[in-house]
Write a protein that binds this DNA or RNA. Structure first.
Lengths: 188, 188
DNA sequence: CGACATATTGAGATCCATCAACCAATGTGG
DNA sequence: CCACATTGGTTGATGGATCTCAATATGTCG
């Protein structure tokens, strides 16, 4: 599935110059400070953010507790998927965890660009497919693994998460309480 | 989000005749008996199945136990998403729960049709988006609800599931043991 | 230094899985 | 058409994983 990212990048490289320039021309660089919110709950996610540097996360509130649903690193595309797709108010927040630099593209501008450069529709399709498979994999992991297994899985596959993100956030990303995560780590 | 299905149907209706006929011409009707497998684990999912009548499910084996991941009713599109998208061996089985009639389209034939009728790419995009949002919603429910809440949620939103599917399958779909589901029902 | 976020540890409660026994309905071979 | 197996569901007892509440470090940053 990681190889699908390669496929997407290959597709981007294979685009004609016209489309490539069109794609670049609709994006603009922006920076956020640590702790700043790129998207608030109940706002419509009208922009997509390609992370150039730094880290960010997506989360929602449940019983006043923050549940992290996705962590964003370099080259990840940060959006609240359903809010972006339906252009409806978002359940989720997007927050800069460090100072970040992002490439911002407006939803409507991208929609217009797809009409002008139809090859971008295929790109959009690939991105949606990738996200669907990513969520499917995450659901699968919640179904089949215990909290300890999920932690070890991240430790193996995504050590950068453990190294850079606070345990409080990792715990909610893993779907366990901070205390449980602490105990899991103590046992290893 | 249900309204997104309406949007997809509207899009299909808005297609020019050429594209519509192209879309229809690549599908063929097939029937399966109750219990038959449309897709087995480790096979590549090379076809999509639009359910015309009857019910089906998608499941995988975990520790020898069947975990149901999706239930298919009339007008649902049954595929193993990652296997279909990547054309790689599937984790999942697809099984007819009743006698079913389906409209079958081959992956490669649809890919070719997208080249010939580019509007089908947008249709494919909408279907992928819909699936991504569906999985996201399911993950969200697993995160925020107890087993009892998930059961009540299905009872409200999808009573046809409770009425037509066996408790054993519903339990695995809800991510609880059959015994727990039985107790949940007894308490209501 | 003080204040506030971050992490660890302990104890009790809760949810749910597992194992096991049992029951009811259905189907099948002789 | 009966005897028995099979499938689907219920119920009880027990244990394990994880949550919650609470107390106690351990930073870390103005």
């Amino acid at each position: 599935m990681t190889s699908y990212i390669d496929k997407i990048n290959l597709y981007i490289k294979s685009l004609d110059n016209d489309t490539l320039i069109g794609l670049q021309s609709i994006a603009s660089i922006k920076t956020y400070k640590k702790g700043e919110l790129l998207l608030r709950q109940n706002e419509v996610c009208t922009k997509s953010y390609l992370i150039i540097s730094g880290t960010a996360r997506k989360y929602y509130l449940n019983d006043g507790k923050e549940i992290t649903t996705e962590l964003f690193f370099e080259n990840d595309l940060a959006v609240s998927f359903d809010s972006y797709t339906l252009q409806q108010p978002s359940r989720e927040f997007i927050e800069a965890l460090t100072a970040i630099s992002v490439s911002v593209t407006k939803y409507q501008t991208f929609e217009d660009a797809k009409k002008k450069y139809p090859k971008l529709i295929t790109l959009d399709l690939m991105l949606a497919e990738y996200y669907a498979m990513w969520v499917e994999k995450r659901l699968f992991e919640f179904h089949t693994m215990t909290a300890t297994q999920r932690y070890l899985h991240i430790l193996n596959k995504s050590p950068h998460i453990i190294q850079t993100i606070s345990l409080t956030i990792i715990a909610s990303y893993l779907g366990v309480s901070l205390e449980t995560l602490s105990r899991i780590r103590a046992k290893i």
